[in-house]
Amino acid sequence: MTAEALDAVATKPARAKTSSIKRPAWEEEPTPAGKVGKGILLTFLVLAVAFPMWCVVVTSLSSRKTIDQAGGLVVIPRGFDPGAYVTIFSGGQVARAVWVSLIVAFGGTAISLTTTVLAAYGLSRPGSLFHRPLLFLFLLTYLIYPGLVTKYLVVTQLVHWKNSLWALMVPSAVNAFNLIVIRAFFMNVPAELLDSARIDGAGEFRILTRIMLPLSKAVIAVVGLFYAVGYWNIYFDAVLYIDDNNLQPIQRLLQGYILAGLSPQVGMSGSFSVMPPTLAVKMAVVVVAIIPPMLAYPFVQRHFTKGVITGAIKG
């Protein structure tokens, strides 16, 4: 493997169609046993992810009869019945939970991206006033653990966000890691470009919106998607801060539906009681919960390698 392996991961260059694989001349052929072992292991890993997802999707699209015949999850699809999706989107708890999660995901991402990008730019110039102490303020969050209790007290008893969606969107809005990643991109923009803009009379905000943002669209999109997936997956914060059944996000609903038999009472007050739905409906909710990360994934996947590495190095 060559040093461009990283790029191969990130951007996947088009290869010539020749099926001959370029193995360096000095490298010996793998033993047949080694080849088979590798093949089995990697196939197993891929199936371990793909198989459960397949079963869930197939079951969610199966009729009650098929599910009864299978006695549970359906592996081999027989027929097609979107009834479960009609049920959950015809209103009621699931539709409401999806709305709540969408609001949190979009609202939270907007808040996170705005604050993170602004601060990343504000911290992108070493030597500016208070640069070092401010940067330290952000980096120190890696090392200092604030504690569950006191954060809970600040959110519920200082800003009074119990049963408010703000509690899910604001307290964890800024992630220092993401900030460092974006900042690293900003700092790589050639200084001449900024100087010329300044000579033309552009202020800092204009430089950010007209030069920095267009140049770093990709990384900002990826960080935004990471934030969005994080907000979509919010579960425990909802256990802490949201008692109102009408404001529960999808993950809480999923926990109520699926794990109810497993662990009846999660949460402090007002256990999240639900009517037992059919297996197809349960699996349809699982599919709904998976869709947003799956949609975000191809975009993120193309870029995350670089982002993760930059963060790892600079952090």
């Binding site: 602004l118 601060a119 730019y121 504000g122 208070f130 303020l137 504690g147 954060k151 200082l158 964890s172």
Partner: peptide, 19 residues
């Protein structure tokens, strides 16, 4: 630059350092 950093810094102070 300070104005731009302020919102994120205030969030950290309120929800990370104050706790």
């Amino acid at each position: 630059l300070l104005v731009m950093t302020a919102p994120a810094a205030l969030l950290l102070i309120l929800f990370h350092y104050l706790p």
